[in-house]
Simulated assay, not measured.
Amino acid sequence: MDEIEYLDVTIKIIFIQIISMDLKREKWKFSDGITKFFADIDDSEFIKSVQKNFQQFGSTDLLKVELQTQQYISKEENLKSKYTVKKVLEHKKGAQQINLKFTDDEDE
């Protein structure tokens, strides 16, 4: 098999969690809660807002996105998938750490 055989393309709206990001290549690593995967980001408005620091992320933040999955058979005849975030719909901040002040009732 000399060429890649493209199979199916699906687009779904899903929440994903950021694992790591590469702003120069616009390729980020995400988790959907089950699978970890790399994805291209095609949403130029979102990328610009990240580059201008309008978007800042924590380790538990979620993105609601339109995620495109392109399945294909590689030259080695293995089934593979390519992921692309077509549009970021929502940025949901994760749990914030708060400082708690503990007191000893006996000292009062």
Rank of each mutant, 00 (worst) to 15 (best):
E3R: 09
Y6V: 15
L7V: 05
D8S: 09
V9K: 11
V9Y: 05
T10W: 02
I11W: 05
K12P: 01
I13T: 08
I13N: 07
I14Y: 01
I16Y: 07
I16D: 03
I18M: 13
I19R: 13
I19V: 11
I19G: 05
D22A: 04
L23N: 04
K24P: 03
K24M: 10
R25N: 15
K27V: 04
F30I: 06
D32I: 13
G33P: 08
I34E: 15
I34R: 15
T35V: 07
T35L: 04
K36D: 09
F37D: 07
F38Y: 10
A39I: 06
A39K: 02
A39S: 11
I41L: 10
D42S: 07
D42I: 02
D42N: 11
D43C: 00
D43Q: 06
D43F: 05
S44R: 06
F46I: 02
I47F: 01
Q51L: 15
Q51Y: 11
Q51M: 11
Q51K: 15
N53R: 14
Q55L: 15
G58A: 13
T60M: 12
T60A: 14
L63W: 09
V65D: 05
V65N: 00
V65F: 01
L67H: 10
Q68S: 07
T69Q: 11
T69M: 10
Q71F: 08
I73C: 04
K75M: 08
E76Q: 08
E76I: 00
E77R: 06
E77H: 05
E77P: 00
L79A: 06
K80E: 13
